[in-house]
């Protein structure tokens, strides 16, 4: 017993992120190790999705600095690395918000993501729960330095339930992974190359599958939206409530978004990192819009980072870790000030 425990323990690797140590299983990515620590030191992830194999590495918002490679080979890594696709090594030391280089690079990435992004947040379904909006807010993207026409695409309907506003897409590939891994018969994919690349079906084809609606939930921006979302509304005026039903196809565990007595839309439940806990089926999502369809559990806790939260919900709480660590407090001054102002 003791020996087994010992063996098991010794298998774990120790990594330090922004001065905070954590022990994780070998093969864990830096991002997931950071998520185990939690708080402000978790790098933002726009493309990685733990439930989708092969995701990550593309958006580059999760870049971090590896200042010590491992106990065995302490050399720092020459470039910033994508924390979602770089595994920890024993003794590794990582800097995220304590590295000015990382903060600067991330600011650059956010700027790049925004230069072709429309400024239509006020009319976007995703506003209030958009990861890009959160990022732009946190990284203080000033007035844009981009003085050219933004790239635009026509909206297209992918079937009668889902709409694609390609103009808003950041090409994170998550929806393609969902279509590949969660549904059968992928009909949409990435067409074209470079900055002309687009999510499309090529010839108009409906995504027609029990689980296709999940592409809406994984989309980090408002590019894939629910056409059955009734009475377009700012998300923060709606009230999220956790509910479930006995569903033959999926777990039936969802979040209902209410306005007054009405269910405006149904989504999967999301965790604190904005990922769905369990994928849900299209029947739950699109067809069950009456309170009587559901067993209500109680109000949903809103994620700490999101714009809905800081604007309209419970106060922004500085993460525990920040208070204990002077270096972190310094690095995260802005966030800290914002938090204490409330």
């Amino acid at each position: 017993m003791n020996i087994l425990n010992f063996l098991k323990l010794s298998e774990k690797v120790k990594v330090t992120i922004d001065g905070m140590p954590v022990e994780v299983e070998p093969g864990t990515s830096i991002l997931n190790a950071a998520r185990q620590i939690g708080g402000d030191i978790v790098p933002p992830a726009m493309c990685y999705y733990s439930k989708l194999e092969g995701s990550g590495g593309k958006c580059r918002t999760c870049l971090v600095k590896v200042s010590k490679g491992s106990e065995k080979d302490p050399r720092p890594m020459p470039k910033l690395v994508a924390s979602c696709r770089t595994n920890v090594m024993d003794g590794m030391e990582v800097q995220n918000i304590t590295s000015p280089e990382v903060v600067e690079a991330r600011r650059g990435i956010v700027e790049m993501l925004l230069i072709n992004h429309p400024l239509d947040c006020p009319v976007c379904d995703q506003a209030g729960e958009c990861h890009l909006q959160d990022l732009a807010y946190e990284h203080g993207a000033e007035a844009t330095r981009y003085e050219f026409d933004r790239r635009t695409f026509d909206r297209i309907d992918i079937g009668d339930k889902i709409q694609l506003h390609m103009t808003r897409c950041i090409l994170c590939y998550r929806c393609v992974f969902v279509a590949d891994q969660i549904t059968e018969n992928r009909v949409h994919g990435i067409l074209g190359r470079g900055d002309h690349a687009e999510i499309s079906t090529y010839i108009e084809k409906a995504i027609d599958n029990d689980f296709s609606g999940n592409v809406i939930d994984v989309c980090p921006v408002g590019a894939l939206t629910d056409k059955t979302f009734r009475f377009k509304n700012r998300v923060w005026f709606t009230k999220p409530v956790e509910a479930h039903r006995d569903c033959p196809t999926c777990s039936g565990k969802t979040t209902l978004w209410y306005k007054g007595e009405e269910v405006l839309r149904v989504t999967a439940r999301k965790d604190e990192f904005g990922e769905v806990e369990e994928f849900i089926c299209n029947t739950c999502r699109f067809d069950k819009k009456e309170t009587k369809d559901w067993v209500i559990e109680g109000p949903k806790k809103v994620s700490r980072q999101s714009v809905i939260n800081s604007n309209h919900y419970d106060q922004l709480q500085p993460a525990q870790v920040v208070k204990k660590n002077l270096e972190l407090m310094e690095a995260n001054k802005e966030q800290f000030e914002r938090a204490t102002k409330f």
């Binding site: 009909v187 949409h188 994919g189 990435i190 190359r193």
Partner: peptide, 14 residues
């Protein structure tokens, strides 16, 4: 293979 896999490839290469 799925048709989309062909479209994806054909539209990538010039």
């Amino acid at each position: 293979i799925a048709p989309i896999e062909v479209y994806e490839v054909a539209s990538f290469y010039s």
